[in-house]
């Protein structure tokens, strides 16, 4: 049974690609055969985060336009044999994607026995984002704890309920999950940032995970290693928890509170 996940947000820069890379890696780590597709045609970031940018020969658009086979275009991850990356094209624009073509590629991936197909959506609500969500069975909406991101996510949730194949066929929207990124418990406690509860209340869908703001995320992106592989970082651990919840495990939320200052820090300040 294969499942198509869309990682989406509406707003740009909230961590969709970082999340796609880590969730796909985490699923592969658990033994699921996984493909992750970059729908951001024209920009191409996923391959950088996955650290395979120098191995991109054929891309998603080539496959859609029958210029290459899917087998030729899939890039095998260097850490996990069961994880494949389908890169976006940098030289085309999103009009190169067609609904029929995307549907064909996803069907072929399912026939090839992929358990999870992770679709990394571009920002916005235009064609690329629409096609990334259109065939999805489940959606992970990435949101930063601030008002504009929450607003855009609400818009995306509306589209997920009306503009997907499931919705059009009257099956209703598939499961929808919230993933909060850049969460800073200290700033939440100071009242400078929306809390998990605030965001959950406004958007009204369950929280899959909360990724604390962490310097390791940027470091991981720059080195082309998805942050989930950095077991020492709290962001990596939080992504690990999110993957566990994605496959149905019941894992308590962590990193929702600011680290307590130790005795010396309390005495002498930071």
């Amino acid at each position: 049974m294969s499942e198509t996940l869309v990682i989406t947000s509406g707003k740009g820069g909230v961590g969709k690609t970082t999340t796609s890379a880590s969730l796909a890696s985490g699923l592969a780590q658990r033994g699921h055969k996984t493909a992750v597709i970059d729908f951001d045609v024209g920009l191409r970031n996923l391959d950088l985060i996955m650290g395979c940018e120098r191995r991109v020969v054929y891309d998603f658009v080539n496959v859609i336009q029958n210029e290459a086979t899917l087998k030729q275009a899939l890039i095998r991850d260097k850490r996990h044999d069961n994880l494949s990356v389908l890169a976006a094209s940098q030289t085309r624009d999103k009009d190169a994607l067609t609904q029929e073509g995307v549907g064909r590629v996803l069907d072929e991936l399912k026939q090839d026995g992929f358990d999870y197909i992770v679709c990394d959506s571009p920002a916005g609500i235009e064609k690329g984002a629409h096609l990334a969500m259109y065939f999805s069975d489940r959606a992970v909406v990435v949101v930063n704890p601030e008002v504009s991101s929450v607003r855009d996510s609400d818009r995306i949730l509306g589209l997920l309920s009306s503009k997907t194949r499931r919705a059009e066929q009257g099956e209703g929207p598939g499961p929808q999950h919230l993933l909060l990124t850049r969460y800073n418990p200290a700033r939440v406690e100071a009242g400078e940032m929306m809390s998990v509860g605030d965001v959950e209340e406004i958007l009204g869908i369950p929280v899959l995970g909360v990724i604390p703001e962490s310097e390791q995320v940027l470091a991981a992106s720059n080195s082309g290693v998805p942050v989930i592989h950095d077991a020492g970082s709290i962001a990596g651990q939080a992504y690990g928890d999110a993957v566990a919840r994605l496959v149905g495990e019941d894992v308590p939320m962590r990193f929702l509170e600011a680290p307590k200052k130790g005795f010396f820090k309390r005495m002498f300040g930071t």
């Binding site: 855009d152 818009r155 509306g158 589209l159 309920s161 009306s162 009204g204």
Partner: peptide, 8 residues
């Protein structure tokens, strides 16, 4: 039934 989302 269900929320009216942003933009709807």
């Amino acid at each position: 039934h269900g929320s009216v989302r942003t933009g709807q």
